[in-house]
Design a protein around this nucleic acid. Structure first.
Lengths: 251, 251
DNA sequence: CGACTTTTTGAGTCTAGTCAAAACATGTGG
DNA sequence: CCACATGTTTTGACTAGACTCAAAAAGTCG
């Protein structure tokens, strides 16, 4: 069921790709800027600096002083925590228009996770101070930021509940559905998850191991729930995966 | 090693206990009100209503329309999520001065967890609208709320990392240390966790089962790390528990 | 093609869950 | 104050899900 070549196609990122037009589009995406008029976005744009990162490079490390709020303009960014035991936990994968830097810029001192580019990226960064100025100038934004963070908190708690009660099968199914909903690209028979996703990544997302993920995914393929190859996955039977998650209810 | 009677003593709560003085003290505790002058606290106080709940009663349920932000004045409140599989996940246990209601009041529609009193409680509640008015009147508060929510997000992510990589032993040790730090009461040889805490509660906190928690705790008692009885725990060897958590590093 | 990475498969082990029953506490009412 | 009803904790035996280690197979890229 695996294709010869990965069907995942990420936009090629060259440093010049972040045109003014594109920057404005990206800055207008986060829920806390979306409602602002074009002039405001243009003004805010002046405070952002863009940086290009090749795939696999760190934007910042866990423990660094939290000086920036970042927006993914192009590419994909992984948020990772390294535990004392040397294990890697993949907290989230972000794509165009999503913010990170965890808003530590506001009050806390250090980043509590590492941000690594998963593909070539263009990242827009704003300093803590400039962001606070924006909050002062556009008071409505603060409340929206609060809502956005609240949403992330809710998601984290959902994740906690899942890790606490789901089997590995269910956690993997949930992760695939979440990613499909987020960066899914509809094809004839399936929804392609538009990012390079290895078994190891999935293991780190679900609190499992590469080998176990591999076994489970092979079974999912046999059962016709997904199609998958090296570093790519497509969901073919969304309802089937959802049923698998609910199935725990029988216990 | 178990005492005949639980050493945990919670203040008795009678409906009249929430005197004006006490209310003002509690309202001044959350990080987002702490910095306000007395007059402001007094004004804010007028928007809060107090409610008494006997132990084991729900303040609100998961899915209810999120209409209130709450403060624990007296007693203890458990934040719980019920999964589709019928399992209970204990997200947090709150005590005097801590807020809950998850700030859904700001933007989102429904509570995403159930709040149940673990002991007799006095809860201060404020409506969504009144809270928003306060945010407008005291602009600095919004930013502090944001910081507070950000902190909870960071804690949740820590929790995710722990669930993903820790063994049950380590998760239980971490939970005990967290609770000891939060509601711990120093005694000669130990730190008593000042709340009624059953093995089942600990199971729900650590994504484990009553039986497993019981076995692990018995071992902890043997090893002199804790002392425990029916619905109470005291940490006797904090460093021992910390070592246990770090021990994963050997893997 | 050949070096490298990722994925798969296999066998063995162990942690933690399940089910069932006993032991223990606690509070109640006689 | 004792006996009973109830809820909590402990213990035991068994099972199974998932991890570990090791090696082979399959993709990918220069």
């Amino acid at each position: 069921m695996a294709l010869r070549k990965s069907p995942v196609r990420l936009d090629w990122v060259d440093p010049a790709a972040c045109t003014l037009d594109y920057r404005l589009k990206i800055i207008g995406r986060p829920p806390f800027f979306k409602h602002l008029p074009t002039e405001a976005i243009e003004e805010i744009n002046l405070q952002f600096h863009d940086h290009s990162y090749p795939a696999g490079q760190a934007v910042y490390f866990e423990g660094d002083t939290a000086e920036h709020l970042c927006l993914v303009a192009m590419g994909r960014v992984k948020l990772i925590r390294n535990t004392a035991s040397g294990h890697e936990v993949l907290l989230d994968i972000l794509h165009g228009g999503e913010y990170f830097g965890n808003l530590k810029a506001l009050g806390a001192d250090a980043y509590d996770e590492t941000a690594i580019t998963q593909a070539d990226c263009c990242i827009l960064e704003i300093s803590s101070e400039h962001f606070e100025e924006i909050l002062k100038r556009y008071p409505g934004v603060t409340l929206k930021v609060l809502t956005a963070v609240g949403k992330r908190l809710a998601e984290s708690r959902e994740q906690i509940a899942q890790l606490s009660t789901f089997t590995v099968d269910q956690r993997i199914a949930a992760a695939l559905l979440r990613l499909a909903g987020k960066v899914g690209e509809a094809h004839e028979e399936s929804v392609l998850i538009q990012l390079p996703l290895s078994r190891q990544d999935l293991g780190a997302m679900t609190g499992s191991t590469t080998e176990t993920v591999s076994r489970v995914m092979s079974r999912f393929v046999e059962e016709g729930l997904i199609r998958s190859g090296r570093k790519w996955v497509a969901v073919t039977d969304q309802k089937g995966l959802e049923d698998l998650i609910k199935k725990g209810a029988v216990n």
